[in-house]
């Protein structure tokens, strides 16, 4: 089976590297101790992006059509929305 690669590296490897990078940035934000709505929502945004990438490329949902294309995306919207609302209400 032919594998799609970018610069000779598998697509899933690029996704893994991107997820690791976003995790490191999240950790550094935590180490600096930055708080508040903007920083919190930025970090949450990174997590939601990572979750979408995991669903699309690791779980393999990206190439599906119909109902099963969307459960992970919708799930990410649920806690993402609840957490965002709670942090924005605190201010």
């Amino acid at each position: 089976m032919k594998k799609r690669t970018v610069l000779g590296i598998r697509a899933c490897t690029w996704v893994w590297l991107l997820m690791m990078s976003l995790t490191l940035i999240t950790y550094l934000i935590g180490q600096v101790g930055v708080g508040g709505v903007s920083a919190s929502l930025t970090v949450l945004g990174f997590a939601l992006i990572k979750g979408q990438m995991l669903g699309d490329y690791f779980m393999g949902l990206k190439r599906l059509s119909g109902f099963w294309r969307w459960p992970v995306s919708l799930w990410l919207f649920l806690p993402g929305g609840l957490i965002s609302a709670a942090f924005m209400l605190v201010g």
Binding site: M59, L61, R63, L64, W68
Partner: peptide, 21 residues
């Protein structure tokens, strides 16, 4: 971008459907 987890497009996710429920 091609996913390594999926060979071809379809309507059902990889694995047994029961695990997805």
């Amino acid at each position: 971008m091609q996913t390594d987890a999926v060979v071809e497009s379809g309507k059902y996710p990889p694995g047994d459907l029961a695990i997805w429920v």
